[in-house]
């Protein structure tokens, strides 16, 4: 994740944040970066950007959010959403990012089963991780 923040009018007016908002049904601007979501995320250790940082990129209209690993490590457990003091269900924002990426042909974690898996595992993986 970039350590330097470069803001521009163009970025802030870009349709990206609106699109994520539409797809997720969650208002990214409600987030005030308290970090509770990231503190409670059981997968944060494996993410290249913490959940609150992902939301920040969305707020800034930065499409770099689409090339992060974070949405693909998120397992939609909703631990973030139930503890968010602003009621942002961040799992939905993560889903919107996955969906946007998948629809653009970005598939960082393709499903190639290496052994027999129960239905419940494969169905979940295909639905969340393949276009």
């Amino acid at each position: 994740m970039a350590s330097e923040l470069r803001l521009s009018r163009a970025k802030l007016a870009a349709p990206f944040a609106r699109r994520v908002e539409e797809l997720s049904g969650e208002n990214p601007y409600a987030c005030y970066q308290c970090g509770k979501c990231s503190a409670g995320c059981p997968f944060a250790d494996h993410m290249d950007a913490l959940p609150n940082q992902v939301l920040r990129l969305v707020q800034l209209g930065d499409e770099a959010a689409l090339s992060l690993s974070a949405p693909w490590v998120c397992a939609s457990c909703h631990a973030c959403g139930v503890r968010c003091p602003k009621g942002v269900d961040i799992a939905r924002t993560m889903e919107a990012l996955r969906v946007l990426a998948l629809r653009r042909g970005i598939t960082p974690t393709p499903v190639r089963p290496d052994r027999p898996y129960p239905q419940i595992a494969l169905i979940g993986a295909y639905r969340k991780l393949t276009p």
Binding site: P42, H46, A75, S76, C77, Y117, A121, L122, G124, A125
Partner: peptide, 12 residues
């Protein structure tokens, strides 16, 4: 109440 990792079992 914590997640087990769910369907990530196939990919990660």
């Amino acid at each position: 109440m914590e997640c087990c990792g769910a369907y990530l079992t196939v990919t990660q």
